[in-house]
């Protein structure tokens, strides 16, 4: 286990370095810079600004300066939010995004997995079809439309839940549902097929012949074995949650990290973009490592390559 973790860290470091480098240069390729504004500033002022942020140096020099800082754990400064460091900005936004993401993942599991089990046990019937359609509804509409619909129905029409903002636990419900819509469908589909698969196994049949109640069989044997593919999928799911977070955070006015992908890129806030990307990449890698460890615990027979 510890070997696995050490190995992961060893792979992670060059990967993060590659990501930082790639993003650094890709961003500089973009036309436009952080100091272009609707009201064009005089060249003298631009010169002052560039000097202040070391942007008058050559690109390799800037890259060197950046790397030096990152190694020390300093992700740089924001050009848009003056006088604020990227560490500072991300430190206040990350917990919010994590809360939202975990809430959504939780929702996806408690809705998607039961739907999948029911569909599998009633395979081929109308109930199966209903379950699959229900879970697919969530991935059949763009998330901004789902968000708008949820706000309209629950926030404005029924007045059951807060429309937006980030104040209490109630405020988490609608955004978490919006964010969970995609992963739920994914999980339901996966659970269904792995439970069907497991149910057709000999030992499940044996258990049934022995007179074990059907539901107990499903839970004790089929679901347990079906857990492995479900857990595998948690890694890619976190990626979906991350991509979805921008839309959801914007619609529900949530002060999370997702929105920096768009706003910071369009502001050409270089360091903030790289910082956000690095943190998200780190989260993904951690999620995948946890998945691998769970995998290992659930089924020690599986040896983990890389």
């Amino acid at each position: 286990m510890s070997k696995l973790i050490i190995k992961r860290i060893l792979i992670m470091l060059p990967l993060l370095w590659l990501i930082a480098t790639l993003t650094f240069f890709l961003l500089r390729v973009l036309p436009g810079g952080p100091f272009d504004a609707e009201k064009n500033l005089p060249p003298e002022i631009i010169a002052n600004l560039k000097a202040k942020y070391h942007m008058d140096r050559t690109l390799p020099e800037q890259y060197y300066i950046y790397l030096q800082r990152v190694v020390k754990g300093d992700l740089g400064i924001s050009y848009k939010y003056l006088d604020r460091s990227v560490n500072d900005i991300l430190a206040s936004a990350l917990p919010v995004s994590l809360t939202l993401g975990i809430a959504a993942l939780f929702l996806a599991i408690i809705i998607g997995v039961p739907l999948g089990i029911v569909a599998a046990t009633k395979k081929g019937t109308a109930i199966d079809a209903m379950c699959i359609i229900c879970s697919t509804l969530g991935v059949s509409l763009p998330s901004f439309v789902i968000g708008a619909l949820l706000i309209f129905v629950f926030g404005i029409w029924l007045k059951l839940l807060p429309v937006a903002l980030w104040e209490s636990a109630w405020h988490v419900i609608l955004p978490a549902f919006t964010l969970a819509s995609g992963p739920t469908a994914y999980l339901a589909r996966l659970t269904r097929s792995s439970v069907i698969d497991a149910l057709s196994k000999d030992w499940v049949r044996t258990a049934q012949i022995k007179g074990e109640p059907y539901l107990q069989t499903v839970i004790n044997h089929a679901l347990r074995n079906a857990l492995i593919p479900i857990i595998t999928v948690l890694g890619p799911l976190s990626a979906i949650l991350i991509t979805g977070s921008f839309v959801v955070e914007t619609i529900y006015a949530i002060p999370g990290m997702g929105r920096f992908f768009i706003t910071a890129v369009s502001n050409r806030d270089y360091d903030l973009v790289i910082g956000t990307t690095l943190i998200f990449a780190l989260l993904l890698i951690i999620a995948n490592t946890i998945v691998d460890i769970l995998y290992h615990i659930l089924d020690p027979r599986i040896t983990i390559s890389d």
Partner: peptide, 15 residues
């Protein structure tokens, strides 16, 4: 492939 997975889709699409 790991690298591409670790880079958020949204960022790639925007860039």
């Amino acid at each position: 492939i790991d690298l591409f997975y670790a880079l958020p889709d949204l960022l790639i699409m925007i860039l």
